[in-house]
């Protein structure tokens, strides 16, 4: 089998997003640690990449050079990636419940050495876009049309290395490289705007010579349209500033708990049930 994309219809895609959210809640509660809210904000984008007709992959041959690459630079949100990989057929759904447990390749942050299909070992913020640029340059040298998608967090944009990579990608006009900033508005200790405000991201990234779009990143239609546009740009790298909500899908619960950031903590068994009920 060769690499191929999977394109679900809109309703099926929405169902798949719900499934990913259920996985994220269940696996982090089972692990009793992890970053469910950081994962939930990114669901629509990851879901559209894996099931909306974008990532050309072959789970049976995860290293096929012809594949597209998705690098989760905000590695702490890896539950969303594991959920999508499992749904895509990389491993059985039961394995999701081994998250963060001794012996499991589903580590707390992505480890490419232990889990085939993971494109980069991340968790030290700021490196994913550079790694993605390396993949994009390799594709250019080889004449492959592989597309490389890299997702960073908005807090992660404080890392200077990301801007080094933005500048270098502009130099090499890597149109096969797309940066998605999951702008969920929060980082570890508070609102990103209070900690270190680097907005407006689109203006700043655009000033380096990138094509940019700013979208509502929890809106499936907007995500699909933006990914389509990004593939159509042929002369420069593209960025999608994806304005999302941290914990999207269980926001009423976070409001009730009085913590809209809810960074780096899993839901209790009790809250898990409430969250799953909210997701429907």
């Amino acid at each position: 089998m060769a690499v191929e994309a999977i394109q679900l219809g809109n309703d099926e895609l929405r169902d798949k997003a719900r499934t990913l959210r259920q996985h994220i809640i269940r696996m982090t509660t089972e692990a009793a640690s992890g970053h469910p809210t950081s994962s939930l904000s990114a669901v629509e984008v990851v879901n559209a990449l894996f099931f909306g007709g974008y990532l050309r992959l072959d789970p049976a041959a995860p290293a096929d050079p012809a594949r597209d690459r998705f690098i989760l630079s905000k590695g702490h949100a890896v539950p969303v990636l594991y959920a999508a990989m499992s749904e895509r057929g990389y491993f059985a759904a039961e394995e999701l419940l081994t998250l963060r447990k001794l012996g499991s390749p589903l580590e707390g942050h992505p480890n490419m050495k232990r889990l085939p299909g993971i494109e980069a070992s991340t968790g030290s913020l700021g490196q994913g876009l550079s790694i993605g640029l390396g993949h994009a340059l390799a594709a250019k040298v080889d004449g492959r049309d592989s597309h490389v998608y890299v997702m960073t967090g908005d807090g992660e944009m404080g890392e200077g290395q990301v801007w080094e990579a933005i500048a270098a990608a502009a130099k090499y006009q890597t149109a096969n490289l797309t940066l998605i900033v999951d702008q969920n508005g929060y980082q570890q200790t508070g609102a990103t705007g209070d900690v270190l405000d680097l907005t407006p991201f689109a203006d700043r990234i655009g000033s380096f010579g990138w094509h940019t779009q700013t979208i509502s990143g929890n809106d499936q239609d907007e995500v699909l349209a933006a990914l389509k546009t990004a593939r159509e740009v042929t002369d420069r790298p593209t960025a999608i500033v994806s304005r999302t909500q941290k914990g999207y899908g269980i926001l009423p619960l976070l409001e009730e708990e009085g913590d809209l950031n809810y960074h780096g903590k899993p839901l209790s068994a009790d809250l898990e049930q409430k969250a799953l009920a909210l997701l429907g």
């Binding site: 550079s130 790694i131 993949h135 340059l137």
Partner: peptide, 10 residues
């Protein structure tokens, strides 16, 4: 890190 990506792509 760019070199890491290049190596990961062969």
């Amino acid at each position: 890190s760019v070199a890491g990506g290049l190596a990961a792509s062969g």
